[in-house]
């Protein structure tokens, strides 16, 4: 019991202190750019609980999810194909390394040429940015499938879809998840950037509007919301990952001891 209490205290102590410091330091802030936390929080309640939740937050999140999931499907499929043949891999890898090295936000103006400024553009931008880390990690994971496991599967007649499902994808899943984790933070960045660039709704759009109209407390509340969103998404990701990779973490622990 005391151990749990101690853990809770350790987890909460610093956030509480930081929060208090922020609250007190800005308590009677006259600084235009740094309003008091009280003001920010009350504007958070006003700005983000009403219509904006549906008109700005929801579209952003939906675009992010669409783009991210599409990127996962595309990247894993392509990664499996490329990773299973040394020749295809050698052929594609330098080109992929180059495409991956392009900072994804610079693709926004290019994709705007093709897809305008609507939802499609934003989703395509997210897909384009998220695909590379997942793709290259999948290639790496598929390449590294254990030879003995491959022989085992073959000798027991495990082929085709079963081989893909029970062997290749499972074996590559730690790498795939590592790529997906990188892709998730990229995806959030691209969601915001694409909306800051050109949009009529969305979180990024709203925050830039607040900044341009000098609605500073609202802007701060938007930054806060983005932070919370990033935190929540990474939390969900970690839950999914720890479920999907529980075997892997167990295996690593057993190897280390």
């Amino acid at each position: 019991m005391t151990a749990i209490a101690r853990k809770v205290a350790a987890a909460l102590a610093l956030p509480v202190v930081l929060f208090a410091v922020w609250w007190l330091a800005t308590g009677s802030s006259e600084n235009f750019y740094f309003p008091s936390l009280r003001v920010i929080l009350s504007s958070f309640g006003e700005v983000w609980t009403g219509d904006r939740l549906v008109t700005d937050v929801l579209p952003s999140v939906l675009r992010l999810l669409c783009g991210y999931l599409a990127a996962v499907v595309i990247a894993v499929t392509a990664g499996v194909v490329i990773g299973s043949s040394p020749r295809i891999r050698a052929f594609a890898e330098p080109a992929l390394e180059f495409l991956r090295a392009i900072p994804p936000p610079v693709l926004v103006p290019i994709i705007m040429l093709f897809a305008g400024i609507g939802d499609v553009m934003k989703i395509v931008v997210i897909v384009f940015g998220c695909v590379w880390p997942i793709l290259l990690n999948t290639v790496e994971g598929v390449r590294a499938v254990d030879g003995v496991l491959l022989d085992t599967a073959r000798s027991y007649g495990i082929g085709g879809v079963a081989r893909l499902r029970h062997l290749v994808l499972r074996s590559a899943s730690p790498q795939i998840f590592a790529g997906m984790r990188q892709a998730l933070s990229l995806g959030i960045i691209l969601m915001v950037i694409s909306e800051m660039f050109a949009a009529s709704n969305g979180l990024g759009f709203a925050i830039v509007q607040f900044q341009r109209s000098f609605a500073i407390p609202s802007m701060w509340s938007g930054i806060l919301l983005l932070g919370i969103l990033g935190f929540l998404l990474s939390l969900v990701f970690r839950l999914v990952e720890s479920r999907a990779l529980s075997w892997y973490h167990g295996l690593r622990r057993s190897q280390r001891s």
Partner: peptide, 17 residues
Amino acid sequence: PGMAVVFQEYGRSLFPW
């Protein structure tokens, strides 16, 4: 189909997942 193999590397021939 009528053949089964047991490999030396037990740690690598069982599916860890």
